[in-house]
Design a protein around this nucleic acid. Structure first.
Lengths: 225, 225
DNA sequence: GCACAATTGAAACAGACGTTTGAATTAGAT
DNA sequence: ATCTAATTCAAACGTCTGTTTCAATTGTGC
């Protein structure tokens, strides 16, 4: 049946891309692993690029839906009250890290892939991701502004950037941490990892903003502390 | 002269790899850009893999030397006294981010490349990086333990992991932040970025460790705070 | 059972890749 | 000037890539 072939290709492509990266996976390795004909890829998807897009879309869309849902719930819980940074962070982080132990090991592989691919150089991958995450970024920036109104705009943006970095690195590379700490840090304990990260990021986001001097040829700035 | 050809290849390879990634850059694109013969790569380096290794080694070795130097200075300043987290973080972060405005735009490109390549999938790239950063990781883990003795071992390791994630993401992808904030966050203001990051990471590292319940089938842990 | 569309199949396409070869050229020492 | 070693050069090697083609097969409505 048609749907089967299509899904088998998607599943196999996802697994192989997660293991080796987009460039290192050929259509032939996908189709032979999936036991389908090479031409099936172009029949069902049109091109390798389109296949890759579908692979990501299939996972990222529900992931981001869950994020928005958690964020909306947190916002509704906080009407007239203060929106807690921890809740915003949890909405951003938890759905992603929970992929780790979802649906066999596919979710985990996809999570690692996402982290790795996020800063991919290839132009069309950038485009795919920018499109998939546009809404998320905008919504969370607003939420963080509401949760941290006392932090200057630029500092808050930078700190969100740092948080995203921690998240991506944890998604893609926490196995290396486990290896390096001889198993002491175990990324498979998902909920604990989430809470550790929420703690870390919340403290970083809330840190007191101390003025710093501007480097280089610019004059020292004198700003009230 | 021999040295010239070799260095021209290294420079060109670095620039192109930084722009497009290792896999996307062919030896032919490197040699034609550098106006040298294709076979020169194999004559001077032996293989593409060996060339890539030299490209990284040439930059990473002095970068890590500077890190160790700054760390040693901080440690010596703190004999008999407390080692400040901020100083350890600065030793880790500053030499890397300062590549941004070093030596034309080459340093910047290399910095971005490093961040991107760090979580590369290809086996030999992993090996190159593990080797280049082995000493650094060990030394900084010790330093952070000294600066943060009150943080439990596992939490500290996780938090260092988060810091590294922030750093790598900032190295590779802060241009996207600038684009997204309409220029409000400017990564070219290197020293300010360093201080922002030091602030963020220091607060995250120092955050109070609140016990969290272990998820899944494991029983709740009861640990003294 | 027939016709028609949807799907699969095997084979080939042109182009790019890393690597190798062996002759031509250049540089340095005697 | 001559010999020798280092370096450069053009050309080809075999292999892999994404894509296309067209015949064979399968499923579906009548």
């Amino acid at each position: 049946m048609a749907a089967d072939t299509k899904n088998i290709i998607l599943d196999t492509a996802e697994r192989l891309i997660a293991e080796k990266g987009i460039d290192a996976v050929s259509l032939r390795s996908i189709t032979s692993e999936a036991s389908v004909n090479l031409a099936a890829v172009h029949y069902h998807f049109g091109s390798k690029e389109a296949l890759v897009e579908k692979v990501f879309e299939r996972r990222v869309t529900p992931l981001n839906s869950r994020r928005l849902q958690m964020l909306t719930e947190a916002e509704e819980r906080a009407v007239g009250d203060q929106l807690e940074v921890e809740d915003v962070l949890r909405a951003l982080i938890a759905p992603a890290l929970r992929l780790y132990q979802q649906e066999g090991c596919e979710g985990r592989q996809f999570m690692q892939m996402c982290g790795r691919i996020y800063s991919e150089q290839a132009g069309y991958v950038q485009r795919i991701f920018d499109k998939l995450f546009e809404e998320i970024v905008a919504r969370f920036f607003v939420a963080f502004r509401r949760a941290l109104p006392e932090i200057p705009e630029a500092d808050r943006a930078w700190r969100i950037h740092f948080c995203v970095g921690s998240m991506i690195h944890t998604m893609s590379d926490s196995d290396r941490l486990k290896r390096f700490t001889n198993g002491m840090c175990d990324p498979s304990d998902t909920e604990a990892t989430i809470e550790r990260m929420v703690q870390f990021c919340a403290a970083g986001l809330r840190a007191e903003v101390t003025e710093h001097e501007v480097a280089g040829e610019l004059a020292k700035t004198e700003v009230a502390g």
